[in-house]
Design a protein around this nucleic acid. Structure first.
Length: 572
RNA sequence: UGGGGCGUCGUCAAGCGGUAAGACACAAGCCUUUGGAGCUUGCAUUCGCAGGUUCGAAUCCUGCCGCCCCAGCCA
């Protein structure tokens, strides 16, 4: 079939356990040699990078085997779902780079088939109408160590069950007064098998079926049957559903269905300093702890996209972390590594000063101006170059000057000469302070012979700094992000601190007085650039306007100096 | 005390009876008009522990230990 990846015959790539299973199935000719997977989100929240792992897996494995993938909304609980989420989810999957073509499905499309399956189950004596209240059902279920006891309604006749089910459907009963339950085994060690509820009464309007139904099927009943109806071959889900597999198989074995898909479970993604749980992320949104699902600190695809992540980065990351069954916590640094690797190659360089300190080049004529040619991307020659103006008054980064520099600080200091990128060598001659002793301005001289950044006499300089011409500068707001949580594992509350109370107070800083080089004035929202020496930034898609750009810092550059500082701080 | 999983470097993760891949992180050095990028080198005598089988075990067997999930009319 596809023996395209024989580029290194000696090193046969190792497959993860799911791809191994599928490869074997194919070899044995199972499923007529087809691979059909599905991605089944419930439209009750936004997708996050944990979902991206599942999407890359299900879509990826199908694609690799000439198969297809369905996008199916698992919308069986109308009280929690909304079309705004289905739109967001579709958008995110598409953005990630996957295409379901015409295979867009909804579990709600199968409501009437599902109803028929339930009738079938009743008819073969494997399901019954139960009048127990939710509290009673819990009581009857038993505990992890003690068996449950059978419902007093368990042995109703098929006729009575059919009649009652019909009436449930017709809306004759109140919410919570009756359920349909599968008749399995109240003493099973697996609680899911203790007569699970498969239908409940919910007088609620559904985002797609409106008020057609007042009874809705439960996940366990719906999912396996939806998979079968769609002729899914491999149904991939997370480890939480491992205990549900016997039930998944039970329904498919008892009922006359088109096929019996194979459910395979894998470990969900965890990343340090973040939370990957739709339920918990929703709480951050609902309690206004963040500014919405697309807040740049959120691990949602929409938040990451707004912050400046590329789909390529996320796909590369998901490919690298692998698929296995053990619980793991991936280092945030790995995600950032792929981010930088991608952005380094694709982002144009530009100069911007986040925390400006004015300098005046005293021997540079007031009416003079230089237009300097700057390379857009040293990693990509085809990106070309641009012109940047230089003049007598400039802004440099406040951090790039120290009046009393420690060892290993190479940047500007009194009497020291450094290079301004693409411009000239300058030497600091004077430090001007205000009444409180704060440095407000630097006086410098430049060497006209060093235009472009090289000294004809061959003398060298330890540092190269970025700068922006004061009179040409574009004012901008820049947002600096850090991890949302202070704890490596925010889920770990063994210290008595819940994740909502472990929010990093410095997770966002808004810098209002930033100075950008003029080429950035009309940056198109969504544009990704590298601010030289600072990091990768993305023009905000919500707040950035032509003439008034707003940038989000996606990630810093690797910062050796920061590391040195940290070490020096530790020594002291 | 029930059922289901999982334990290989700081973090992910290969390995499937023949003598521990790779990546990130970390460290040292080279190079550099971004303290960026790039390059070089180092980094598990040992695979949760203890026995056993075998010429040979991370891989097979037995017994322990540890961690995760399950008691929604959520998915």
């Amino acid at each position: 079939m596809n023996d395209k990846d024989n580029n290194s015959p000696e090193e046969k790539e190792s497959l993860d356990f799911i791809r191994t299973i599928i490869a074997n199935d194919l070899k044995e000719g199972k499923n007529d040699g087809k691979v059909i997977t599905r991605f089944p989100p419930e439209p009750n929240g936004f997708l996050h990078i944990g979902h991206a792992k599942a999407i890359c897996l299900s879509f990826g494995v199908a694609h690799e085997n000439n198969g297809i993938t369905h996008l199916r909304f698992d919308d069986t609980n109308p009280t929690k779902e909304d079309t705004k989420y289905v739109d967001a989810i579709k958008n995110d999957v598409k953005w990630l780079g996957y295409d379901w073509d015409d295979r867009l499905h909804y579990a709600s499309d199968y409501f009437s088939q599902l109803y028929d399956y339930a009738v079938q189950l009743i008819k073969i004596g494997k399901a019954y109408v139960c009048d127990l209240t939710p509290d009673q059902i819990r009581e009857y279920r038993g505990t992890l160590t003690e068996p449950g006891k059978e419902s007093p309604y368990r042995n109703r006749t098929v006729e009575e069950n059919l009649d009652l089910f019909e009436k449930m459907k017709a809306g004759e009963f109140e919410n919570g007064t009756k359920t349909i339950r599968a008749k399995i085994d109240m003493s099973s060690g697996n609680l899911n098998m203790r007569d699970p509820v498969i239908y409940r009464i919910m007088h609620a309007s559904h985002h797609r079926t409106g008020d057609t139904w007042c009874i809705y099927p439960m996940y366990d009943f719906t999912h396996c049957l939806s998979d079968s109806i769609e002729k899914i071959t491999h149904s991939l889900c997370d480890l939480d559903f491992e205990d549900h597999r016997p039930l998944y198989d039970w329904f498919l074995d008892e009922l006359k269905t088109p096929c019996h898909p194979q459910q395979i479970e894998f470990a969900r993604l965890n990343i340090s300093y973040t939370i990957l749980s739709k339920r918990r992320l929703r709480r951050l949104v609902e309690e206004d702890i963040v500014d919405g699902w697309d807040d740049c600190r959120m691990p949602t695809l929409s938040g990451m996209r707004r912050r400046g992540f590329t789909a390529e980065t996320i796909r590369a990351f998901c490919a690298r972390i692998g698929v296995a069954k053990r619980d793991s916590m991936v280092d945030l640094a790995l995600l950032e590594y792929y981010l930088r690797e991608d952005l380094n190659k694709s982002s144009n360089r530009v100069m911007a000063v986040l925390n400006p300190l004015k300098i005046v080049i005293e021997n540079y004529p007031e009416d003079k101006e230089d237009i300097l040619e700057c390379i857009n991307n040293p990693e990509d020659e085809s990106a070309g170059s641009r012109e940047v103006p230089f003049s007598r008054e400039l802004y440099i980064e406040r951090d790039d000057f120290m009046e009393d520099p420690p060892k290993k600080f190479f940047r500007l200091a009194p009497g020291r000469e450094v290079r301004l990128r693409y411009a000239y060598f300058i030497t600091c001659t004077d430090v001007i302070k205000d009444d409180s002793g704060e440095i407000v301005e630097l006086r410098c001289t430049y060497d006209p012979e060093t235009k472009g950044g090289n000294a004809p006499d061959g003398r060298r300089v330890k540092a190269t700094m970025h700068w922006v011409s004061a009179k040409h500068a574009v004012d901008s707001e820049v947002r600096i992000f850090d991890t949302l949580f202070t704890k490596e594992n925010p889920m770990d509350d063994s210290d008595g601190i819940e994740y909502v109370d472990a929010i990093n107070p410095d997770s966002v800083k808004v810098l209002k007085n930033c100075k950008l080089e003029p080429s950035l004035a009309d940056a198109v929202p969504g544009t990704r650039v590298q601010f030289e020496r600072l990091g990768y930034f993305c023009a905000d898609t919500v707040d950035s306007k032509p003439g008034q750009p707003v940038f989000n810092r996606t990630v810093t550059l690797r910062d050796t100096w920061a590391k040195i500082q940290k070490k020096q701080g530790k020594k002291k």
